[in-house]
């Protein structure tokens, strides 16, 4: 493996590790359920993304053939992170007092508490 590539992979690994740690630390440190939701959805996703870049680069250097599984895992994590966050936020809203949320500004209420029909 060339020196430049090794530096690149090491940088990706270090940055990924730091972001992953920050995401998990935020989960412990932040107060309030909604605040805690912010930390893992962003920091951890990018941490894993950096790790996958490093993995793809080492695989490329070792076998001279691109492995596309890393691309799939990354795409999958980035597509699903917003959905997970949305569902967790909806679950939190069940226990939020109604007065805390701002009005929609439209005739209908937020879909979570709007009566069907």
């Amino acid at each position: 493996m060339s020196l430049a590539l090794e530096i690149l992979v090491s940088a990706a690994l270090v940055v990924g590790g730091i972001f992953g740690l920050i995401g998990s630390f935020g989960l412990l440190k932040l107060r309030g359920a909604m605040q805690r939701l912010h930390a893992p959805t962003k920091a951890t996703t990018v941490g894993v993304g950096c790790t996958l870049i490093a993995s793809a680069l080492t695989g490329l250097a070792a076998t001279q053939a691109a492995s596309w599984h890393e691309v799939l895992v990354t795409a999958f994590l980035f597509l699903t992170a917003p959905l997970t966050a949305l569902y967790l936020a909806k679950t939190h809203m069940l226990t939020t007092p109604p007065g805390e949320l701002p009005p929609t500004g439209t005739p209908r209420d937020w879909s979570n508490r709007d009566a069907p029909g």
Binding site: E6, V9, S10, L13, V14, G20, L21, F25, T51
Partner: peptide, 16 residues
């Protein structure tokens, strides 16, 4: 260098 970075990343994620 790579093995140090790898150990660092593994430690970070294990701590996480």
């Amino acid at each position: 260098m790579l093995s140090y970075a790898l150990t660092f990343a593994l430690t970070c994620f294990a701590l996480g």
